[in-house]
């Protein structure tokens, strides 16, 4: 369970987040939707302890991320790009991540296989396409077989095959009782993957509910999204 409560983030005089609050529940895929610059990444970075909130809380279970005893086995996170240094090979990157959690080397090969990067594992990350970089980022998130997945724009850069694969993967992950929180600015890709939707616009949550509730009387999630973030924007 992820619980975010009244999160405020100011940078200088600009308020990036103005009281963000929502939950992501086990067994469900929660979509965190909003246009670019709405505050999605900022929220996820605070949730992962990378950035500090001006006020408010973001909890994994009942503790902030930085207090987790075994972070990799609890939360798998993927933010921008691959999260790897370009001069290292994909396998070397996953190996140091595995070492930080005391995971066996064999686990590295398992996740490489899961994301379909086995044949590219000995190449330097700098030579990867965006799609491959994203797969490597996902492989790192999956290393510890975590209860919770937090993915920032997971379908960005993936080819249609990859998008289809990740949808199925996330649905299965949630079906086994785990928690999935993903952000996206692409509504079409998301409608078929998510159970719950949180819509964020200019640092505020403008809608929070199940996919059906949010879509409501609109034809598609996309229509609902544009109505929420343009027409009815507070």
């Amino acid at each position: 369970m992820i619980t975010i409560d009244d999160l405020v983030k100011r940078r200088g005089s600009t308020e990036i987040l103005s009281g963000i609050g929502f939950q992501a529940r086990p067994g469900r895929v929660t979509g965190f939707l909003g246009p670019n610059g709405a505050g999605k990444s900022s929220t996820l970075r605070i949730l992962l302890g990378l950035d500090r909130a001006t006020s408010g809380t973001a909890l994994i279970g009942s503790v902030p991320f930085v207090q987790l005893r075994d972070p990799l086995a609890t939360v798998g996170a993927m933010l921008d790009g691959s999260g790897a240094h370009r001069a290292r090979t994909g396998r070397a990157h996953l190996r140091w991540v595995a070492r930080s959690a005391g995971l066996p080397r064999g686990r590295v090969d398992e996740v490489l296989d899961m994301v379909g990067l086995t044949s590219a594992a000995s190449r330097r990350v700098g030579s990867y396409s965006l799609g491959m970089a994203r797969r490597l980022g996902l492989a790192a998130a999956l290393l510890g077989d975590p209860e919770i997945l937090i993915l920032d724009e997971p379908v960005n850069g993936l080819d249609p095959d990859g998008i289809r694969w990740i949808r199925t993967f996330l649905r299965e992950h949630a079906a086994s009782g785990r928690t999935v929180l993903l952000s996206s600015h692409l509504m079409g890709e998301l409608a078929e993957t998510v159970d719950d939707v949180v819509v964020i616009h200019e640092g505020k949550v403008v809608a929070d509910g199940t996919l059906d509730e949010i879509t409501g009387s609109h034809r598609t999630l996309e229509d609902a999204f544009f109505a929420l973030t343009t027409g009815n924007a507070p």
Binding site: G49, L72, G83, Y128
Partner: peptide
């Protein structure tokens, strides 16, 4: 390649 940095991976691991 997505504009990522390794520090995010490092600090989510430790």
């Amino acid at each position: 390649s997505g504009g990522g940095r390794q520090i995010t991976t490092s600090l989510t691991a430790v």
